[in-house]
Every structure is written in C-alpha cells, then in structure tokens.
Computed example of a mutant assay.
Amino acid sequence: MSYAGGTFVTSDEVADALVHFVATVPRNRRNQVVVVPGFSADGESTPVALVLGPASQILSQHEAVSYVEPETHGVADEVRRQASSHENTARVESANGKASLDYDVF
C-alpha cells in the first residue's frame, strides 16, 4: 500500500478493504482513523494507523514477500463495517417548528 508518501505491506484482503473504504466514503464525511496490521520484511506484525476520508489517495499493489501472509482474519470485515457506518444519512431535528439537518451523524 502507498499512502501519504510512504508505503507499508499488509494482507491482500486488508488492502482491498482499505481501497473499498476510501471509494465508498461520501464526500460530506469527516476523516476517520483506521488501524490495520502492517508487516515488516520478515513478516512481523506492526500496527499502521491511517487517517482516511473522502480525499484520501491510496494505492494498492501486489507485493511478493518471502513469508507466508500473516493471518488478518476479521480485520478486513471490520474496515468494511467502518466504511458502511459512513453512509450518507441525515438526522432531522425539530425545535420550535423549525427543522435542521445534521449531515455529520455517525
């Protein structure tokens, strides 16, 4: 993955989920911190924190590694869940007969 001028290695499944996240976040959403497992050259896991939002630019590219891809079961599902929680929803509140729309509902 390439992000903010740097690169890191993660599982194919997590990389796909991150691309999905950025592609599905509506333009009116705020940035969100997403932490995923990254891996060193010898396969050791290290957390990678990303600030993702509608303007994020990431690149996913397959990387051949010399180790078995570490288990990241459930991480991609969690990233996809976070992406779906960013659906473009609005809450209407009425006070004194006037409605106000809040588009930043999480």
Rank of each mutant, 00 (worst) to 15 (best):
R80K: 13
L18A: 06
G38S: 12
D42M: 04
G74N: 04
R30C: 03
V9D: 04
A83R: 00
L18F: 07
Y103V: 10
R81Y: 07
S66C: 11
M1K: 07
K98L: 15
A99Y: 09
A23R: 15
Y3R: 01
R91E: 13
G5W: 02
V79E: 04
Y3L: 00
V51S: 12
A17Q: 03
G74I: 07
D77P: 05
F8T: 06
E44Y: 13
S100V: 13
Q57A: 15
G53W: 01
A55W: 07
S100I: 13
N88F: 02
D42W: 02
V14F: 00
T10F: 02
V48H: 00
S94V: 14
A49N: 06
V33H: 13
V48F: 03
A4F: 01
R27Y: 09
E78F: 05
T89Y: 06
P26F: 01
Y103W: 15
S100A: 09
R80V: 14
V14A: 00
S56G: 04
S45I: 10
A23Q: 15
S45K: 15
A15E: 03
E13G: 08
V79W: 02
R30S: 05
G53F: 01
F8R: 03
Q32A: 09
V105A: 12
V75F: 04
F106K: 08
L52D: 00
V51M: 11
A90L: 07
A4Q: 14
L101E: 05
N88T: 07
S45R: 13
A64Q: 14
N28E: 12
N28W: 06
D16V: 08
F8A: 00
G6I: 05
G53T: 02
S11F: 03
